[in-house]
Design a protein around this nucleic acid. Sequence first.
DNA 1: CGACTTCCTCCACGTCGTAAACTATCCTAG
DNA 2: CTAGGATAGTTTACGACGTGGAGGAAGTCG
Lengths: 415, 415
Amino acid sequence: MAGSNTTTVRDLRRSNRSRALWQVFLGGPMTRQEIGVLAGLSPATVSNLVADLVADGIIAEVGLEDSNGGRPRGVLQVNPEYGYVIGVDVGETEFLVELFDLGLGMRARHLSATDMAVLDPTDAVTHVAEGIRSVIAQAAIDERAILGVGVAVPGLVEHTEHAVVHGQSVGWEAVPVESMLRDMIDLPVLVDNGAKTLGQAEKWFGAARGTDNAIIVLLGMGLGTCIISNGEVYRGATSSAGEWGHTCIAVGGRRCRCGANGCLEAYVGAAAIAARYAELAGGGQAASPANLEGTVAAIIASSQRSQAAAQVLDEVVTYLGAGIANLVNLFNPERVVVGGWLGRALSGALLPRITEAASTYALRLPFSGVRIVKAELGQDAVALGGATLPIARLLNAGATAPPARPERRPAFTTS
Amino acid sequence: MAGSNTTTVRDLRRSNRSRALWQVFLGGPMTRQEIGVLAGLSPATVSNLVADLVADGIIAEVGLEDSNGGRPRGVLQVNPEYGYVIGVDVGETEFLVELFDLGLGMRARHLSATDMAVLDPTDAVTHVAEGIRSVIAQAAIDERAILGVGVAVPGLVEHTEHAVVHGQSVGWEAVPVESMLRDMIDLPVLVDNGAKTLGQAEKWFGAARGTDNAIIVLLGMGLGTCIISNGEVYRGATSSAGEWGHTCIAVGGRRCRCGANGCLEAYVGAAAIAARYAELAGGGQAASPANLEGTVAAIIASSQRSQAAAQVLDEVVTYLGAGIANLVNLFNPERVVVGGWLGRALSGALLPRITEAASTYALRLPFSGVRIVKAELGQDAVALGGATLPIARLLNAGATAPPARPERRPAFTTS
DNA sequence: CGACTTCCTCCACGTCGTAAACTATCCTAG
DNA sequence: CTAGGATAGTTTACGACGTGGAGGAAGTCG
């Protein structure tokens, strides 16, 4: 209905350039023929495009592949040195900044423990900017070769003109992170929700690879999701789609920190699990937030012995299964990927039971087409996902803009 | 990431033709300039395209519009006589078949009362085919001018090669409606879920007009939704997305006819409302399915006097609000349209309360961007939506295929 | 009636992707 | 070692496309 923005023959070129690039980027080293098949282009066009891309330095011929009895195929790959990207994971307890080359090889890393809850937004952004300067210095890279910075934040991100962050859980209200950061560092900045960047990372390199309709759920303190629809992140009208943690799973149920009753997060969130265990086991106080990860691990480990632990996990399995079933019914994905630190902890032993619970709540047909799997990427997947943001922009544009940074606009212009 | 399938200059032409056509079709009578602005095309190209389209008979210049002091603008419109489409609403208690011209003016109509629950799929499809023959005869139209038939069915529709219908509620299991119908009538057949066709109708002509992210909910015996994302119907992997009625809203809650517990439909579905009322009011038996509409109307009408009716409606408002809030959180739409016969009945007086309930369950930010409104189209919206299916196909193809039906392939071909 | 305004169309141009011819580079057989 | 064959990639000729600018069309206004 709406469709692409290719209206002239030159747009067509750019669009085809973009297609070819995407294939080479995601499909790893690849021959010209494969590009042609996957991108739907004729050999002549591929040759032509590839020549351009090689001349621009964005891809390179990295080897030859035997063909039985003929000229060997040239193997093409994205040139990792073409440019660099920075991914930032603004977590609730620590900030992680990583610098990658275009092959997503990590070149530098900066981790700083902080506490967003007590941090002024300005201070937080200053911390991030410091981390960014640090990785650039570590990697010893010309700043002009950096394509951009992708920042993953907790909470809702509204994409109007500049990204504005609403972090209800950390008390941020309409913080214009993008423009704040842009004032401190002179690089293109892209901001997105942490679950969405994680999802994009899993979609490109992890458990959701190759699927066009997937849902990546991120379990931790809060619950986030990334909905992949037709191969792209689903955003909705103001880019806040996928707020799964505060969907109602029990009308009139437990009170949630968001103020509503019966939110999924009030049953499956890490704090809820710890609180429920404390309630059932009696005695001890609720665990401190800093140690939640240990508390949950202990609950899982003791589930064979402790009646209370077993019951807590039973409940978690049921509610999580129902929550996943709702996603399956509503979105009809091919795959559901369970990630986040809590997700990894739970899916270690409990994934079959969670799947079983989901099957009882979901409709047969959509459930029959879905696979529920563990996330494949590790702890820095969120930062990696952040780094994918500027890359996606580059590839969508067909890497037509030069890697050098755009000039600042002069104070007076004739227009 | 994936993007369009325009790779050659000819695809480009088709794509631009399609854009222009969509604008004229949905934007009503329109000048060349407006088309150019809306479709992002230069005046020269618009002229060129329009000349083609007029020559093909799909659009026509229907008047002149004054321009202050210059040559008047030509006003273009889709030619209603270019072709005809048939929309079929396969309801649970009656079949409605309507024949429209391309301006969506109704030319013929055929209504037959039936009961899908006692009907063999073959019998049902035969009934539909009879209805189709009837409207063609009534309208006295050359069959070759009919662009296609869009059939709206209850239940899940799986779009693999041919559409297969899984109507859990009416006991249909994997019924290949599309190929069955194609064997009876020699017309292109498109099958889709009734909620999705209703949604497309509301998106084109009703309360969701002009929005790119909307959700149309259809309340009746069952609950369906149509999710509009980026201006198009969201389908998911196997086209069964949007199964809202059987999402879990109360873990461990009421048993639903689908077998699970706590489905939204078990609280907000028409049968559930009637049953709950009977339970609270005591005495009388549950209302018969045939008279559900009257029963619900009576409950609504008596809510001022009857304590039981008021309580039933209170519960419905709460659960429906929570269900809508979940949709808002997950999909972040600009608008939620409440339709279906039950939706119309409830939203008459209760829409403010439903909105209020939704606001308590939804997150502030996504909720602040959404408007919850009544459906605008009437009872035949589902059939109208069915008719939009072949139209959408026509417009997407840029109306390049001739309106005459394709020949049957001869028994022997040289290829 | 002429000047002016606005809308639309035609034409020359640069760009595009493609089919087909052609070149490059390997293997194999003798 | 060479000829023939197979496969991969490139060049060329061609038709199609959208666009800018020139010019025609069709009104209004003085």
